[in-house]
Design a protein around this nucleic acid. Sequence first.
DNA 1: CCTACCGATCGGTAGG
DNA 2: CCTACCGATCGGTAGG
Lengths: 230, 230
Amino acid sequence: MSAVLSPRKPAAVAAAAVVPTRPRGRPRKTALERDDGNRRRDLITAAARLFHRKGFAATRTRDIAEAVGMRSGSPFYHFASKQALLFAVMDEGMRSAIAQQAQALQQACSAGADACGQLHALVRNHFDVLLGPRSDFIPVMLYEARAISPAQRRALAHLTSEYEAAWVPVLQALRAQGRLRCDVKLARLLIFGALNWSVQWFSARKGVSLDALTDAALALFIAPAHKETP
Amino acid sequence: MSAVLSPRKPAAVAAAAVVPTRPRGRPRKTALERDDGNRRRDLITAAARLFHRKGFAATRTRDIAEAVGMRSGSPFYHFASKQALLFAVMDEGMRSAIAQQAQALQQACSAGADACGQLHALVRNHFDVLLGPRSDFIPVMLYEARAISPAQRRALAHLTSEYEAAWVPVLQALRAQGRLRCDVKLARLLIFGALNWSVQWFSARKGVSLDALTDAALALFIAPAHKETP
DNA sequence: CCTACCGATCGGTAGG
DNA sequence: CCTACCGATCGGTAGG
């Protein structure tokens, strides 16, 4: 285990030439120990964390390698470039955000939530994606978009469209009820802005919870239901 | 004029050694032609434009120098570092945004605007700062904060506090009127988010005007005035 | 403010 | 996936 975590000690370099029976280099792990496919995922996770903390430009591929116990050149065995690694973070982040959102919405609907309840579920889930425990990916995607290529941006735009598509019918229903007093498209853009910006100021340790934040946002955007006039 | 704009031609290099009466190097401009203090401002303006377009990391100091007709090393005569130039962009941007906002609010007040009218003026001005003709500075400040030092961030935080302070009494008044249904502090953060995010999607050529955008935002955030119950 | 540089950094690669 | 390395880039500087 410690051999995996600190593979940097040059054990006995001088002795190596004198003991030819021992295979050269450090002992290779077997294919099983190497748990191949997960190394790529490890890199993505570590990259997401570092890109989130320090930004893409300030993160060196060496930092990412070190974070998963690789040497400086090894990430390029898994990814063609630093940019490809960034894209993988964003792509992976969007795909799991979409899945997570679908589940949250499904759950609300099967509990009989109305449009307002569905929006609550969407907003709460979005805050979780932005600020929750596994929130390294989407903030990177939101705030490092300039570092990827136009083609990559297009690919991600498809995913974000898919993500946002779930909001449209919900907002339209609220609009029809008179509880959203603004063009649906603009409302979507403004509301996403309000939520996405929380990445800049939210601190988990002090102040509001994600639940309280969700309530505040809904109170701000959505008018109370009309009283029925009997 | 063209000598200023394209000072890169090596005119007659070989001849230079043969004509010693001519002073070495290209003809110096006089102190008057050099209009000293404004070169610094030129650099800030060009830097703001490039940082906004391409981002801080992707902009080379050489690009900035070229944009104002200097050679690659010359910006460092005016600024100690690339980071200092970035900070100057942000600082300058905040100071003029504060001044512009004070004027807009003053104008609304002396026209007898109520709290809602004042918020309208603040939002409209903020969209102008973010998206209007002189909008290179604040977007850079909003989206390149990670590239400056903690001390510089603190200095800017004071200015943003000052900028935001003007919003507080207006929001409080609307809250007291029941037209803002959310804690004032959270409302401020969410509303700024909604507006600031417009930098990511607004396009001047297609779609809404800044006036229409302002109306939509106010309709979304602020409830209609209560009908007076006589 | 230009000329002529330097020197560190860092993404990336050849070969095993 | 490591070793050993390259090579371009780019912020920054000495001296005038």
